[in-house]
């Protein structure tokens, strides 16, 4: 018989956009993790992972914010992030950012090794197969770029969504094509970004789904903002909300 292992101690890296725009996702993440037997803590010393600075060419600020995050999350068994983009920053880019910093390189590696995107952590590390949720609706799913290509998040959300009672998945054609968010890209090149999100919302509408899910708040704000501007009734939520059955808050971009 397997020995009962102590509950893994998980530090939740909330991410700026969840913290500011959609705390519901944070609570959904906590619920999913706790239901799967983890102890969850949210260090208050965390702020931003530093990706905006990193992608703007401000390496120094990115390094400082990386050190701040590393320090804030020392000592957890795992660090879990409800975003492939911020997760990728920590897992893939921190080691590279601090590779030449003798005091921090090893710590960055260490954090990287323990950091996971939320859904892949549930499926791959904890072996969750069913979150016990119910969602009555037809959804479609967009693969956010960083999660997909930096962290290999693709099958995991689909596997878990298949366990949600009442839910039908209509696959999104071009699900792996960028929605046009890209952080500062969408405000620096609004017209190009618009063309990209337009193509995306056309594909979304084509699926006949009533709900759009994805794993990254940046993409979700972008796609929800466009769908709403176009007058679409499609509801937009973070995948964690549906998996956790936390769907009593209004969908993204809709009034309560």
């Amino acid at each position: 018989m397997a020995e009962k292992r102590p509950a893994p101690r998980v530090g939740l890296f909330v991410t700026c956009l969840v913290d500011l725009f959609r705390p519901t996702v944070g609570f959904a993440a906590v619920k999913l993790l706790e239901d799967a037997g983890c102890t969850v803590e949210v260090p208050s010393a965390q702020t931003c992972c530093g990706q905006p600075a990193f992608n703007s060419g401000d390496r120094k600020t990115a390094q400082e914010l990386a050190r701040n995050t590393i320090a804030a999350f020392e000592g957890f068994d795992y660090v879990v992030v409800p975003s492939g983009s911020c997760g990728g920053q920590i897992k893939k880019h921190y080691p590279e950012l601090l590779a030449e910093d003798p005091a921090w390189a090893a710590r960055a590696q260490h954090l990287s090794a323990r950091t996971y995107e939320l859904v892949s952590f549930l499926a791959d590390v904890l072996g969750v197969t069913d979150t016990g949720a119910r969602y009555d609706g037809t959804i479609t799913y967009h693969d956010s770029c960083s999660g997909l290509r930096e962290l290999g998040v693709k099958e995991q959300p689909r596997r878990l969504l298949a366990s949600v009672e009442g839910l039908t998945l209509n696959e999104l054609p071009g699900a792996e094509v960028c929605c046009g968010f890209g952080g500062t890209f969408c405000v620096k090149y609004p017209d190009v970004s618009n063309r990209m999100v337009e193509a995306k919302t056309a594909d979304i509408k084509g699926t006949q789904a009533d709900t759009l899910l994805a794993g990254d708040m940046g993409c979700l704000l972008n796609m929800a903002g466009k769908l709403k501007r176009e007058g679409s009734a499609i509801r937009v939520r973070h995948v964690a909300e549906v998996l956790a059955g936390v769907t009593d808050t209004p969908p993204i971009g809709e009034k309560g």
């Binding site: 909330v14 969840v18 913290d19 500011l20 725009f21 959609r22 705390p23 519901t24 944070g26 609570f27 949210v42 208050s44 969408c186 405000v187 620096k188 609004p190 017209d191 970004s193 618009n194 999100v197 704000l221 972008n222 929800a224 903002g225 466009k226 709403k228 501007r229 808050t249 993204i252 971009g253």
Partner: peptide, 17 residues
């Protein structure tokens, strides 16, 4: 840059923290 082409979803009102 954002609202020229799309709406900006409103935050829920409190931060998660």
């Amino acid at each position: 840059g954002w609202t020229k082409h799309r709406d900006m979803p409103a935050p829920e009102g409190k931060t998660f923290q």
